[in-house]
Computed example of a mutant assay.
Amino acid sequence: MNILNVATILCIGLLIGGELAVSAFINPVVWKLDLAAQARASQLFGRRLGRAMPVWYIASLLLLVSETITHRHESHIGLLGVAIAFWGAAIALSLLSLVPINNRMVRLDADGWTESTQRELRMWDGLHRVRVAVLAVSMIFFLAGLGI
């Protein structure tokens, strides 16, 4: 296994783990807080992750593309292409639905945090879970493409 394989596995694996942690641990805890605390916590997480994740997603995509170029003459190249397609689908889902909701959430003050806002945040979480599943499928195809 070469350094590119290790870097790609770490990069996408840690990203998927971080995204899973948001749905499985962070959001359920935040939802138990009062509305003002939910608003503040969601704003803080939304801003922090909103800055870091785009860079991480693009870096992961570039690593997947690099892996595909590196392994272009191998028999499992199609699996690497499928991994890229799923990763791209996750990015598209993010840009078309999750990012706009996140951007609205981080702009709200505590007074703007209503039941409607909470429903929108739960919709975000449902879409986010779909994204996590798509990312996991991408990882599976990537690992299969490497023969791991």
Score class of each variant (00 low, 15 high):
Ala39Ile: 05
Ala133Lys: 04
Val134Gly: 05
Ala144Glu: 08
Ser66Met: 09
Leu20Lys: 12
Gly81Lys: 07
Asp125Pro: 00
Ser138His: 06
Leu96Lys: 09
Ser138Val: 10
Val55Asp: 07
Asn5Met: 13
Gly145Thr: 01
Gln38Asp: 00
Arg131Pro: 09
Ala39Asn: 12
Ser42Thr: 13
Phe45Lys: 03
Ala52Gln: 14
Val55Pro: 03
Ala59Phe: 11
Phe86Pro: 02
Phe141Thr: 06
Leu61Tyr: 01
Leu61Asn: 02
Leu80Arg: 03
Gly50Val: 11
Tyr57Phe: 15
Val130Trp: 13
Phe45Ser: 14
Gly126Ser: 09
Ile91Glu: 02
Ala89Cys: 05
Leu80Lys: 05
Ser42Asp: 05
Leu135Gly: 08
Trp56Asn: 09
Ser75Phe: 11
Gln38Pro: 01
Cys11Asp: 03
Leu49Ser: 15
Ser97Gly: 08
Arg72Pro: 02
Ala37Trp: 08
Lys32Asp: 03
Gly17Tyr: 13
Leu33Cys: 13
Ala136Pro: 11
Gly81Cys: 03
Ala36Leu: 03
Met139Gln: 10
Ala90Ile: 05
Asp111Gly: 07
Ile140Arg: 00
Arg129Met: 13
Ala21Met: 14
Ala41Val: 02
Leu4Asp: 02
Thr114Ser: 15
Arg131Lys: 15
Thr68Ile: 00
Arg107Tyr: 00
Leu79Met: 08
Gly18Trp: 12
Asn2Ala: 00
Gln38Trp: 08
Leu44Gln: 14
Pro100Arg: 08
Val65Asn: 05
Leu96Trp: 06
Ala144Ile: 06
Arg131Tyr: 11
His73Ser: 03
Val55Leu: 12
Arg47Met: 09
Ser97Thr: 10
Ile140Cys: 10
Ile26Ser: 05
Ile58Asp: 07
Ile140Tyr: 11
Trp56Cys: 01
Gly112Met: 14
Ile9Ala: 06
Gly126Met: 04
Leu135Asp: 07
Pro54Thr: 02
Leu35Met: 02
Glu115Tyr: 10
Ser23Phe: 13
Trp124Thr: 04
His73Pro: 01
Phe142Asn: 01
Thr114Val: 00
Ile3Ala: 14
Glu115Lys: 14
Arg107Gly: 14
Arg122Lys: 08
Arg131Gln: 14
Glu120Leu: 15
Ile12Asp: 09
Gly112Leu: 11
Arg51Gln: 15
Leu135Arg: 07
Leu35Thr: 09
Leu15Arg: 11
Ser75Leu: 13
Gly145Lys: 06
Ile91Tyr: 06
His76Trp: 00
Trp31Leu: 14
Leu79Tyr: 00
Met53Arg: 01
Asn102Tyr: 04
Leu121Ala: 01
Leu62Phe: 03
Ile26Tyr: 05
Ser75Asp: 13
Ile12Met: 15
Phe141Gly: 08
Leu15His: 06
Leu93Phe: 07
Ala85Pro: 06
Leu35Phe: 07
Val132Arg: 10
Met1Phe: 10
Gly13Thr: 01
Glu120Asp: 10
Gly50Gln: 12
Pro28Ser: 09
Ala144Trp: 15
Ser23Glu: 13
Ala36Cys: 06
Ala52Asp: 08
Val29Cys: 09
